[in-house]
Design a protein around this nucleic acid. Structure first.
Lengths: 184, 184
DNA sequence: AACAATGGTACAATATAATGAATGTAAATT
DNA sequence: AATTTACATTCATTATATTGTACCATTGTT
């Protein structure tokens, strides 16, 4: 039994106390015995996934939050002058990375600047990866798999990025967009 | 034993096959017995959290991905004309919601438009909430707790939002920024 | 003071997770 | 054809998760 890598007990106690309920009440709500909850909070046992799932529902949170190790940091800034810049294959699109160095493993932020009719074509990312594209200026078309949509300034599209996908500037002028990529 | 709510077996088999390895190899890499892996994939047992954690590491993925129920959807679009708009308390900042309807529970996207010297002050969000702020145009100062930073166009700041935080336009002209809020 | 309620911990019994070895199937090798 | 290898499943045993109950300490009520 080795739970030292996952602070489950600490997290459960934290959320329980944040909610202001006793072990007794949490036992009632979760269907997990009070004595088991006590043992978990004291890190004396390694619970099954279903047990943690039941507790997460009773605490109105997720399994992920209950297994996560916390971090703490001040404001982290990535300057445009330091931000890596990439280009699409035909150089019709500039890709500014907005993700600060100590980035979350599952999130990427970009600013995309397209030349007139410029395009950015991408291969499938990880399974279940998703993208959120907001048009800052211009008229853009986004395609993912067999789906396609045209976006005006201020519109936001959400689509699965675990298939071929592309972003095209439909206008005669430069277009700019903000891209959020999520790896689940 | 009730794992019907969490498709762990299916997910593990999916990632294992995607990686192209046998139960034997996964057992070697994860330190979980081959027979246990077989039982899990057949949903014949409810594994402990540590066991799933070991498997997730061996599969180069996360516990979350292994417990997640899949979804599938085409491109979802939120038009600027349909996007909810909020205002800061003194109406010095317009807040456009960029989050499509079927939004992920832990992610929010906004475009912020500040009047000259406009400000947006926020109370603490959920514990461990984080924000990523990219300046689209203008000169902005962001403060979180006792930390503060000034940002120019193209700069991105990352900070904890589980404490008082504010965003202020330092310039004499309008400023625009893109805000990504993450609830862990 | 005696009793009840609250909240958490310890303990013994029961249920089940996890293992190593055996078994089964199919394909490849001798 | 016989044997070996690769892959997955089953089985009996061991280890441990999980429970209900008892215990402990503190606070509140009668």
């Amino acid at each position: 039994m080795d739970t030292s890598h996952l602070p489950i007990g600490k997290n459960i106690m934290h959320y329980r106390k944040k909610k202001g309920i006793s072990l007794d009440e949490l036992a009632r709500r979760s269907g997990v015995s009070k004595s088991m909850l006590s043992q978990i909070e004291q890190e004396k046992t390694n619970p099954t996934v279903i047990t943690v799932w039941k507790i997460s529902r009773a605490l109105d949170t997720t399994i992920e939050e209950l297994v996560e190790t916390g971090t703490d940091s001040p404001i982290e800034v990535l300057r445009r002058s330091e931000a890596p810049v990439f280009y699409s294959e035909d150089n019709s699109c500039e890709i500014y990375v907005n993700s600060p160095i100590h980035m979350m493993d599952n999130l990427e932020l970009y600013t995309l600047v397209f030349k007139p009719h410029g395009a950015l074509n991408s291969k499938p990312h990880y399974p279940k990866a998703e993208e959120f594209l907001t048009v800052i200026s211009g008229h853009i078309q986004v395609t993912a798999g067999e789906f396609s949509a045209t976006l005006n300034e201020g519109d936001t599209a959400r689509y699965r990025a675990d298939r071929d996908h592309s972003i095209v500037n439909l206008s005669e002028t430069e277009a700019t967009a903000y891209l959020v990529v999520i790896f689940p």
